[in-house]
Design a protein around this nucleic acid. Structure first.
Lengths: 151, 151
DNA sequence: TCTGATATTGATAATGAATCTCTTTATTAT
DNA sequence: ATAATAAAGAGATTCATTATCAATATCAGA
């Protein structure tokens, strides 16, 4: 099956993926682009959720391929892994820079945020310990406004 | 087997565990105290590591018990879970308050730190989103001073 | 456009961490 | 001491993720 024409809205991401593939002597496949397309539509997903979303379509895409492709998207910088409970979630970070999360432990809602001041303080702490940061993960757990009222 | 006399240095932690057990109508057992003792000696551990450490001694302590007890220690506030790679690590937080980590992605060294200013900023961001923080996780990944020289 | 080399897929087996089950043993209140 | 029952141990089980491998698709070069 040949690679499909990219929709306008996700052309950038498709381009990023293709460039990564070219640079690593990997091949452009319809599965990879279908998974990327689905991933971008969903923002925060597990491999299972994408698999479930794609069971409807033919030809069938296997779970192993979903996992392989999601890991690939992480390598391109399009996705970012996050552990929540027993599952690994993949977050879309293509259209924005690095960002962090507030996670409601009751309903699972995820609020994204970005804070330069916090990052500056991180750098400062690191400097004090002669540590060189390449990346970081900040997750705030608690209750979103909706759930806080109920409990 | 009867509960063993607590060594001076870990009396506090043993006391915390016993109080938690009493409050929840759970029982004091030698396994729980042996696991706690081993845990405190090792600072950052996986269940497997404790299991391996304890294979030497008799009577044998099962892996399931290690898992059960480590979860118990988290409930007492003596330990804190952290996901790293595929395994769950348990960190000793008994002698200090909540703290965060810098993790060297090359050698695995963990540097602990605490920063109130960062936490204040977190609260501020949360307030802006009407989010109520109960806990958080901050991990900085990169290279420690030793590894940074080499690479 | 065809072809060969080989990357990728899909189905499923395998792995591995963590939990559950169930029988035996240990603890604790009376 | 004894009864009630929590906990331990051993191993089965679960579930997410990865590895295997035969069949298929991609792509560079003829």
């Amino acid at each position: 099956m040949a690679a499909r024409p990219a929709k306008k809205s996700i052309r950038n991401e498709i381009a990023i993926l293709r460039e990564h593939l070219a640079q690593h002597e990997l091949r452009v496949t319809s599965q990879r682009e279908i998974i990327l397309e689905t991933f971008l539509k969903m923002e925060h997903v597990t491999a299972e959720q994408i698999y479930h979303e794609l069971t409807k379509r033919t030809p069938h895409i296997g779970l192993a391929t979903i996992y392989r492709t999601l890991n690939l998207l992480c390598e391109c910088g399009l996705a970012q892994q996050r552990h929540f409970g027993t599952q690994t979630h993949f977050d879309n970070v293509s259209h924005k820079g690095h960002h962090d999360h507030m996670i409601c432990t009751q309903c699972g809602t995820i609020i994204e945020f970005e804070n330069c001041d916090i990052e500056k303080l991180q750098e400062e702490v690191a400097r004090r310990h002669k540590f060189h940061i390449t990346t970081h993960k900040l997750e705030l757990y608690g209750q979103c406004s909706t759930c806080h009222g109920k409990a």
